[in-house]
Design a binder for these strands. Structure first.
Length: 417
DNA sequence: ATGTCC
C-alpha cells in the first residue's frame, strides 16, 4: 500500500476471482461488517472486476448500499435495485434566504402528496418522454403509476429548502450562478413504482442471474426509461414546490445514483490497466458495466452530497487530476450520510428519548414536515452516520474538492398520516 | 424503496 496515494485510508484487496475490492473508508469512520461481507460477496459474482464501498456503505437486501460494481459482459439488475433512476436534483430559487419565511412557506406546502393536477401523459410528452417506451413493459396499470408523477414517495426521499452556510471555492461556486444569499431546493426521489415493476418482472424470469449479450436489451431499455421517468419526476416535484411557494427557479444539476451504464472507452482502458494481472485483453471485446447502488457518478459535473435531514449538505466537485483515484473509486462518490441504524431499529432506540416534536425540529432552527410518525423515527438524523466524516473520507481519498456547504431550512417528507 | 406485507 506504500505507493498508494490513499493509504492508509483505502483498504484494497484482491479476491480469489481476481477482482479488486476497495473501501473508501478511514479509521474514524464506522461501518457494519455485514456491509463489508455483502460488498465482498457481490464482487465475487461472475464477470466482476471492481467493487467499491463508499464511506456511507451500509447493508442492503443482499447487496450493500453506497457501492459501485464494475463488471465485464455481465449486467446484474438486482444490484441497481428497485428504485432505478433514484437521484438528486438541485434548484436555485429566486428567493434570497433572508426572505424565506418559514411559517408562510410551510403553510403553502399543501397538496403535494396528491397526484399532480396536470395530465401525466401531457407532462411526459412535454419533457420529451417517449410514451411508447411503456409498450411491452408488462406493467399492469401505467395510468396509476403516472399519477405518482410529481410525488416524492417514502423512505429517505425528500424535498428540502436550504441556504448557503459556507463557500469553499468561490470561483466554482459563482459559476453555478449561486450567491451566498441564495436559497436552493434539493429534491431526492426516484422512479416510484416503475423501477420496482421493472425489477420484479426481471427477477421473475432471471432471478439474480446476470444478463449477457442481446438478453440485456430488454432490461436496459426499461432501465433507461425508468431513469428518464425519475429525472422528469424530480423536475416536476421541483416545479410543484416552487409554484406552491410562489417562487421561481432553475435547475443547477440532476444526478442519478441508482443505475447501470456502460463505461466509456477511456474508462474501459483504465480498468484494463488497473486489472492488468487479470489479462483482460482476451475478454476486453466485451463491454464493461458500472452498477451504481447509492453512489453518484464522477463524470457528470458537480454533485450534491446531502447529510441527514438534520445536518449540512455539501456541493462537491469530483477531482479529475488523479486518474488512479478516479478508476479505483469506480468513477463514483458517496451519495449521502448512509444509515447507521436499520429502519426497524431506529424507532426502538429513539422512542424513549425523543418526542415527535423533537424530531420535527431539524436542529438548525428549521423543521421537518413528516406527519407519518413511523417514518419520522426511521428517518431521524440519529439513525444516520455523520456526513462530515463521509465528506472528509472522500476528501482524504483525493476524490473531491469542496465547493460549498448548505444548511437545511425546511424539509418536506409527507403530510400523509 | 414500494398504487408496500399482514
Amino acid at each position: 500500500m506504500g505507493n498508494s496515494p490513499f493509504s492508509p485510508l483505502r483498504a484494497s484487496q484482491k479476491l480469489n476471482n481476481g477482482a479488486l475490492v476497495n473501501l473508501v473508508i478511514s479509521e474514524k469512520n464506522w461501518l457494519e461488517t455485514t456491509a463489508v461481507d455483502q460488498l465482498i460477496h457481490t464482487t465475487q459474482l461472475p464477470g466482476m472486476l471492481l467493487g467499491v464501498g463508499m464511506p456511507d456503505l451500509h447493508p442492503g437486501k443482499g447487496q450493500p448500499i453506497g457501492a459501485a460494481f464494475i463488471s465485464q459482459e455481465h449486467i446484474y439488475p438486482h444490484l441497481v435495485g428497485s428504485d432505478i433512476g433514484c437521484g438528486m436534483g438541485l434548484w436555485h430559487l429566486d428567493v434570497p434566504a433572508h426572505k424565506f419565511k418559514m411559517d408562510k412557506i410551510e403553510k403553502r406546502l399543501v397538496g403535494l402528496d396528491e397526484p399532480y393536477e396536470e395530465s401525466p401523459n401531457e407532462l411526459l410528452e412535454q419533457y420529451d418522454f417517449d410514451l411508447s417506451a411503456f409498450d411491452r413493459m408488462g406493467i399492469e396499470n401505467i395510468d396509476a403509476l403516472n399519477n405518482k408523477l410529481g410525488t416524492i414517495g417514502g423512505g429517505n426521499h425528500f424535498a428540502e429548502f436550504q441556504s448557503v452556510a459556507k463557500i469553499f471555492d468561490s470561483d466554482v461556486f459563482e459559476q453555478t450562478g449561486l450567491t451566498k444569499r441564495s436559497t436552493v431546493l434539493l429534491v431526492h426521489s426516484g422512479s416510484r413504482g416503475l423501477g420496482q415493476a421493472i425489477l420484479h418482472q426481471h427477477m421473475n424470469s432471471h432471478g439474480a442471474n446476470s444478463l449477457t449479450g442481446s438478453t440485456q436489451n430488454g432490461y436496459l431499455h426499461q432501465h433507461d426509461t425508468a431513469v428518464k421517468w425519475a429525472e422528469i419526476n424530480r423536475y416536476i416535484i421541483a416545479r410543484r414546490f416552487l409554484s406552491a411557494i410562489k417562487a421561481g427557479g432553475h435547475s443547477i444539476l440532476d444526478i442519478t445514483h441508482n443505475s447501470v451504464t456502460a463505461l466509456s472507452s477511456q474508462q474501459q482502458n483504465d480498468m484494463i490497466s488497473l486489472c492488468a494481472p487479470l489479462s483482460l485483453t482476451e475478454k476486453s471485446k466485451h463491454t464493461m458495466w458500472i452498477h451504481r447502488k447509492g453512489v453518484s457518478p464522477t463524470d457528470q459535473g458537480l454533485v450534491m452530497i446531502p447529510g441527514s435531514r438534520g445536518s449540512h449538505s455539501y456541493l462537491v466537485k469530483p477531482k479529475t487530476d488523479n486518474k488512479n483515484a478516479i478508476s479505483h473509486g469506480g468513477y463514483s462518490l458517496a451519495h449521502g450520510a448512509g444509515r447507521k441504524w436499520q429502519r426497524s431499529d431506529a424507532k426502538g432506540k429513539l422512542r424513549n428519548n425523543f418526542t415527535v416534536k423533537d424530531l420535527e425540529n431539524n436542529g438548525f432552527g428549521g423543521r421537518v414536515i413528516c406527519k407519518q410518525r413511523d417514518l419520522l423515527f426511521e428517518e431521524a438524523p440519529q439513525a444516520y452516520k455523520n456526513i462530515d466524516v463521509v465528506i472528509s473520507d472522500l476528501q482524504q481519498a483525493g476524490m473531491i474538492d469542496l465547493i460549498a456547504q448548505f444548511k437545511p431550512l425546511l424539509t418536506y417528507k409527507t403530510r400523509k398520516k
